[in-house]
Amino acid sequence: MARTLKLVSGVEPAMVWHADTALPAGTDLVVVPGGFSYGDYLRCGAIAARAPIMDAVRAFAAKGGLVLGVCNGFQILCESGLLPGVLMRNQQLKFICRDVYLRVERSDTPFTRGYNAGQVIRVPVAHGEGNYIADGETIARLEGEGRVLFRYSSPDGLVDPDWNHNGAINAIAGIVNGQGNVLGMMPHPENHVEAVIGCTDGRGLFAGLSDHFDKAA
């Protein structure tokens, strides 16, 4: 993730220790990357969500700062209350690492401005608990407010159970919070930013963010 941020934006990201209590001054974007925080022996992300630094992340998000959580990062954002819902065990009860197709639902967000609405991208997933679920009311609100940014789909953009590897409700792969400044997603766009390592379909997310900050500056 750090390498991708540098590769696409040209800016070296600062690493923040879990036990720290403040983000570096001038932070534009907080990225909570993938991994197995604390081994994920409890509910995935449950312990990391309570790490000292997360108070600063919550405060940063409350002020409108952009936060991106990928894979375990998405789980941590859900557990920390920054995003609704929860990631359950994959429907097949197995860890799955493979390339999947995502339909980009909107292009008018800082996270997806590098894509066109309806565009299909190929990015890898690598998780055992990516099966997104929330209560019916929350799902209705997410859908009604257009907060689902990525959905698992066929290469042609059709949402179909055969192309929803983890069984997530409504094939949800990534959502934003009500203010639209916190994105959580299970797939790994950061691992598809070079043609020789898979493909470059993930690059748009980071290029779009970079563009967003350039325009804002």
Partner: peptide, 25 residues
Amino acid sequence: VWEQYDHIIGGNTVQRPGGDAGVVR
């Protein structure tokens, strides 16, 4: 089998499982 192994973490996997040899940058 190999879909249960994370074979891409690190972002350096040039050739994934299923071929003659794995290749890592």
